[in-house]
Computed example of a mutant assay.
Amino acid sequence: MTGLLPIKKFLKEWVPSLLVAVVVSFTFNTYVAQGMRVPTGSMLPTIQLQDQIMVEKLVRFTDFQFGDIVVFYPPLPGHEEERYVKRLIGLPGDTIEIKDGSLYRNGEKVDEPYIREKMTYTFGPLKVPEDKYFFLGDNRNDSLDAHLWPTPFVDKSKIIGKAMFRYYPLTEIGPLK
């Protein structure tokens, strides 16, 4: 019977702490922030293939800004459960057009120092509907993004969160811009 005493003591002392840790971890991961490995090169040169980034999920309850790097579920048949990482290009009400290798937002040319190279395609003009967003990768000519999707807009309900910073590789830790 004495062999059971250490087990009972262990269970009494550690199980409540472990349960609290599991609940806190699950809640944090589900509602606050989550790590993610980037599986493609669609955001080169900003985010490298296989980089690990932290995604803040609380931001989905606030307003997004042009240029934010966002994680979402795409409106792409066969890919609806995948998480995509792209740059926010068009907010609700914006008119987006790509011509002559440049992005135009509401008729004005946008300076985009983060893109890998000028675009080799044309797109639009299209107006972003209410509660929808328009996303493109920084590696525009090699990115499966809104300019190729049958429905180019992402519903607000499909947004997971904002990519805040890279935490791996360790030599590249820092905020994403």
Rank of each mutant, 00 (worst) to 15 (best):
K177G: 14
L170N: 03
S102H: 13
D138E: 11
V71Q: 07
I159M: 11
F28Y: 13
V59Q: 12
F165W: 15
Q50F: 14
I160P: 06
I159A: 05
F64P: 02
P169C: 06
F72K: 07
F61M: 09
I7F: 14
K177M: 09
R140T: 06
K9G: 02
F123Y: 08
L58S: 10
Q34W: 00
A146W: 01
Y168P: 01
F66Y: 10
E130T: 10
S25E: 00
N141M: 05
L170A: 13
D100V: 01
G90D: 03
L58A: 12
I115V: 12
S143F: 03
E13I: 00
V85D: 04
R140F: 01
K12C: 05
G3D: 13
R105P: 02
T122I: 01
I47N: 07
T120N: 14
L49H: 15
R140D: 03
K109M: 11
G90H: 02
E117A: 13
K162I: 08
M54I: 15
D138L: 05
E130Q: 14
K99P: 03
L44G: 04
D142M: 09
S17L: 14
P74F: 03
A21Q: 05
Q65M: 08
L76D: 06
Y168F: 15
P74E: 06
R83G: 05
H79A: 14
N139E: 06
